[in-house]
């Protein structure tokens, strides 16, 4: 036997401190000088990016259209491309929700992420296995509900906000039948008051109903116990609001549903 492979140290205290020292050594050896190793990477990146910027700026001119004329509305009038996801959502929700409440919820929801995602794993490295739920929800929101709606609004929407394929002629007189109905009407309600009540029930069953049912189902799980009631309800609320958009898009595209709940003050 080699002399270096000695018997385990009987004193646990000593072995613990040895481990600690080893860890510290590893940490120190993994640190490298910022100059030149990081600075040169930043400098290289900056040069490459600026090269690309210059080529882009020489090769492609910023758009200039006719002078501003408040009396001539272009059809379609599009918001800047980065807001076209929100403009697309105007098809499915009224402006008070799509243009004001939803953007606010997106911003607040993003800010809440570090406080509702209490999973300590996956801090500082790439992993999917250790944070399946968080990554799935975020990527779904970012790629499907934000980026793909921007692509839809930018390349597939023409006059009258009708759908056109990118190579199709933008016919300003394209007629699309407006056959959308409200969900309570579809379900058989005919009187205004019944439609109001059916709509209200549907909305309240979804939220807070959905969140409360989830609470009952998850009550005894470890996830719920770690989250606590407050964090659970914030998470569930934000999640349901995000999913409401998916439901509304599906109902509109598949069944031509316009509103779920019509009230004298607002429509959902």
């Amino acid at each position: 036997m080699d002399s270096t492979t000695t018997t385990p140290n009987p004193s646990s205290e000593v072995s613990e401190s040895t481990v600690k020292n080893d860890k510290k050594k590893i940490t120190l050896s993994h640190r490298i000088h910022t100059w030149p190793y990081l600075v040169r990477m930043e400098f290289l990146t900056a040069i490459i990016v600026m090269l690309g910027m210059t080529v882009w700026a020489i090769g492609m001119d910023a758009p200039t259209e006719q002078p501003a004329d408040p009396n001539r509305t272009p059809n379609p009038s599009k918001a800047p491309w980065y807001f076209l996801g929100l403009q697309e959502i105007l098809v499915y929700f009224d402006p008070w929700y799509a243009g004001v409440v939803l953007p606010t919820l997106i911003i607040v929801g993003l800010m809440a992420i570090p406080y509702i995602d209490i999973n300590p794993r996956g801090n500082g490295y790439y992993t999917f296995r250790e944070r399946k739920f968080a990554i799935s929800v975020f990527l779904f929101g970012f790629v499907v509900l934000w980026l793909s709606l921007i692509v839809l609004g930018t390349f597939f929407r023409g006059p009258g906000w009708n759908i056109f394929l990118p190579w199709e002629y933008w016919d300003p007189h394209k007629v699309v039948a407006l056959t959308s109905v409200d969900l309570p009407y579809m379900l058989g309600a005919r009187q205004e008051s019944t439609m109001f009540i059916v709509g209200m029930l549907l909305v309240f069953c979804y939220y807070p109903g959905g969140a409360l049912v989830g609470q009952l189902l998850l009550r005894d799980t470890n996830i719920y116990k770690q989250l606590g009631a407050v964090r659970y309800h914030i998470t569930a609320g934000l999640f349901l609001m995000m999913f409401a958009l998916v439901i509304k898009i599906f109902l509109r595209l598949a069944f031509n549903v316009k509103y779920i709940w019509v009230t004298p003050w607002f429509n959902v």
């Binding site: 200039t64 259209e65 006719q66 002078p67 501003a68 009038s77 918001a79 800047p80 243009g99």
Partner: peptide, 15 residues
């Protein structure tokens, strides 16, 4: 201050 500008901002601020 062209057509692109005022109508994009009109759509945005109408919200």
């Amino acid at each position: 201050w062209d057509q692109l500008a005022i109508w994009a901002v009109t759509v945005g601020t109408n919200m």
